[in-house]
Design a protein around this nucleic acid. Structure first.
Lengths: 140, 140
DNA sequence: AATCAATTCATACTTTCGGGTGAAGGCTTT
DNA sequence: AAAGCCTTCACCCGAAAGTATGAATTGATT
């Protein structure tokens, strides 16, 4: 930051020097006002661009890449709507009974869904199923 | 992009108009050259800054934030070295028996570790423990 | 040396999971 | 209407997971 200010100061000094020089030439050699103005405009535009870049150069923001569900994967694996709901709750750490309560279905129904999920995800444990589902971008 | 160019063009037109106006004032009211130059300099610096910002505005790079383990959390929860190993393997979807084989200890030992983990993570199931551990930045 | 935490293991018991099978009702497609 | 999928549910059984309690060993700390 200190360097930036120093550079800016030096650049300003150089510019003012240039301006004075041009001003001197203007009266001595009768350069046209348009030309003089043009030079100034170009110089200060360049200066502005430089400052603008300085201001935003290092703003590489760390952004969590938004999760995008791979819909195609879900379809490819033939995972149904209900099965997916169960998968989500499973990933949230709920037990089959809790899932059953949350979805207003019986424990047996949830078991059926989980069994089907394990087949489709080629898993044999819920932890594994969740881990695979995350790797496949099915869930965040 | 087209909009940017259009805006730039319009801004330029407005500036030239302003310049001509100022030029007119210069000769009519005898404004000092320094003042005139100053106005131009400020305007074009502003223009340059604006252009510079435009050029770099959208460089928000999507970077996967590297995982940094929250060592303090691990200590705060009083999770021991061995328990942490078990936690990692658990998160990888391994069963207690598989963890036992991998660490060359008995199944009962793994059960002890998992039980302690559940207490420390305030979980009652391995899926829940894994989910919480991830949220707490204990594991990736 | 005594203490403490960590690690290891055991036994016993309860709960949850997962696998297998079957089946009924609803909805869509052919 | 028949076939096919989804959803729902049931029952059984064995395996895995989780709970509780106790205990031996080791390494570090005091």
């Amino acid at each position: 930051m200190k360097k930036t200010i120093l550079f800016y100061g030096l650049a300003m000094a150089a510019l003012i020097f240039l301006l004075k020089y041009l001003e001197y030439r203007l009266f001595v050699h009768d350069l046209s006002t348009e030309f003089y103005v043009g030079i100034i405009a170009v110089m200060f535009t360049a200066l502005g661009i430089w400052v603008g870049l300085k201001l935003t150069r290092k703003k590489i923001v760390m952004v969590n890449p938004a999760f995008v569900q791979d819909e195609q994967q879900v379809q490819r694996l033939g995972i149904s709507r209900r099965e997916f709901e169960v998968l989500e709750l499973m990933a949230a750490g709920l037990s089959n009974q809790e899932i059953a309560d949350k979805l207003f279905v019986s424990l047996n129904t949830v078991k059926t869904h989980t069994s089907n999920l394990f087949l489709k995800l080629e898993a044999s444990r819920r932890t594994q199923a969740v881990q695979k589902a995350k790797k496949m971008k099915l869930i965040p």
